[in-house]
C-alpha cells in the first residue's frame, strides 16, 4: 500500500447529461440562511393558508415528503392548489397520485422524475408542452437532496451511470481523482421550499417523525423555506425530555402548522390508517380524467383542510381511521 498521493491523476469529465437542473449555489444557500432563517427560539405556528401565502412563491422548486397516501403533508398540499400556485418545479421522488393533482390543477410545470404515477393528466400536459420532465431516479433525487443538506455542490453516487436518464439529467461521469475509476456525480438540490408532515412538533418547529420515511430530515435541511405540519403540537419541555427523538431542529423550520389528520386520505403511521375509500377515490380520479372533479369535491370548496375533514369526511370516519391503526409500537418518543 502506497502512502503517497496520486498527484498525477486529473479529474476529467467523461460524459454529461444535457438536462437543466435547479441552480447549484452552496454559498448562496449559506447567505440565505444567515439572512432569512430565524435562529431565535420564537414561535412560528401559523395556519396552512398563511404558511403557503408567505413561503411558497410561483416558480419555486418544491419538495414534499412521502406522498399523498403515506404521511403526505396534505393540508398544506391542498392549500397550494387552493391558492393557485403556478409554475412549481417538483422533486418527483416517491411521488404517486400527487403529481397528477398538481399538474392538472395548473400548479406544476417541471418535474425531476424519480417516480410519479403516469396518469392521463400528466401525459396530456407533456404532449401540450405544459410540462417538462427531467430524468433521475428516486434514490438519485434523495441523494441530490442529501448533498444539498450537507452544503455541498455535488455528490458522487454509485448508481445512475449508463442509463438514458443520465443523458437527460444534470449528472456527469468523471474520473475519480482518488481511484482513477469512473464515477457519476449529481448536482446538489436545494429546493426553494419543502413541505413535511410530522407526527409532533413544538411551536418553534422542533419536529418528531416516527417510522420510516423518504428524506424528511434531508429535505428540511436542504430547503430554503420549510413548512412543517404536525399531527400534534407538543410542549417544548416534551421535546427537551427526549432530544434524541427530534428529527428536525427548529432553526431549519419557517412555519409550523397544526394539522391533525393532515395526511387524509392517506395514513399517518401509528396515528391512523388510511381511508381505503378515499385512497381508491383519488386513484380512480387520477387514472381516469377525474382530477378537476376530485379537486372540486375535496379541495376548492373549503376554506381550510379542517373544514374539509369536518364537512366531507366526518368525525365518525376519522375515529374509525384512528381505531383501525392498531400498531403503536415505535410511534412515540
Amino acid at each position: 500500500m502506497t502512502l503517497s498521493p496520486s498527484s498525477s491523476r486529473q479529474i476529467e469529465i467523461l460524459r454529461q447529461g444535457s438536462g437543466a437542473y435547479h441552480p447549484v449555489d452552496p454559498d448562496g444557500f449559506r447567505h440565505y440562511v444567515r439572512e432569512h432563517k430565524n435562529r431565535a427560539l420564537q414561535p412560528r405556528l401559523m395556519t396552512a393558508r398563511e404558511a403557503v401565502d408567505r413561503f411558497v412563491a410561483d416558480g419555486d422548486y418544491l419538495t414534499y415528503e412521502c406522498n399523498y397516501l403515506m404521511r403526505g403533508p396534505n393540508a398544506v398540499f391542498h392549500e397550494l392548489i387552493r391558492q393557485e400556485k403556478k409554475d412549481l418545479w417538483i422533486a418527483g421522488k416517491f411521488t404517486y397520485v400527487d403529481v397528477a393533482l398538481l399538474v392538472d390543477a395548473g400548479c406544476a410545470s417541471k418535474i425531476d422524475c424519480g417516480f410519479f404515477l403516469s396518469a392521463p393528466a400528466v401525459e396530456r400536459a407533456l404532449k401540450e408542452g405544459r410540462l417538462q420532465v427531467y430524468e433521475y431516479s428516486n434514490v438519485i433525487m434523495t441523494l441530490r437532496i442529501q448533498a444539498g443538506a450537507m452544503g455541498l455542490p455535488f455528490l458522487p453516487v454509485r448508481s445512475f451511470g449508463g442509463t438514458t436518464g443520465f443523458d437527460h439529467s444534470g449528472a456527469k461521469l468523471i474520473s475519480d481523482p482518488y481511484t482513477g475509476d469512473p464515477i457519476t456525480i449529481v448536482p446538489a438540490l436545494n429546493p426553494d421550499v419543502a413541505i413535511i408532515h410530522a407526527h409532533q412538533a413544538d411551536i418553534y418547529g422542533n419536529a418528531r417523525i416516527f417510522g420510516t420515511g423518504i428524506s424528511d430530515v434531508e429535505a428540511a435541511l436542504a430547503s430554503r423555506k420549510v413548512i412543517v405540519s404536525a399531527e400534534e403540537i407538543v410542549d417544548t419541555e416534551e421535546i427537551r425530555r427526549n432530544p434524541g427523538a427530534t428529527s428536525i431542529p427548529y432553526y431549519a423550520v419557517d412555519a409550523v402548522v397544526s394539522s391533525p389528520f393532515g395526511s387524509y386520505p392517506g395514513t399517518c403511521p401509528g396515528y391512523y390508517g388510511s381511508d381505503p375509500e378515499g385512497v381508491f377515490e383519488v386513484f380512480r380520479a387520477v387514472m381516469g380524467n377525474g382530477v378537476p372533479a376530485y379537486l372540486d369535491k375535496w379541495v376548492r370548496p373549503f376554506e381550510t383542510f379542517e373544514d374539509m375533514l369536518e364537512q366531507q369526511v366526518g368525525q365518525a370516519k376519522l375515529d374509525a381511521m384512528r381505531a383501525n391503526e392498531v400498531l403503536k409500537e415505535g410511534y412515540s418518543a
Binding site: K93, T212, S274
Partner: peptide, 22 residues
C-alpha cells in the same frame, strides 16, 4: 392495506430498523 406496501405501520411492523430512502 390497499396500496400500503411501504411506510404504513403494517408494512414496516416488527422491523429490525427503520430508515430512509437514502
Amino acid at each position: 392495506e390497499p396500496m400500503m406496501t411501504m411506510v404504513a405501520s403494517r408494512a414496516v411492523y416488527r422491523a429490525l430498523a427503520w430508515g430512509t430512502m437514502n
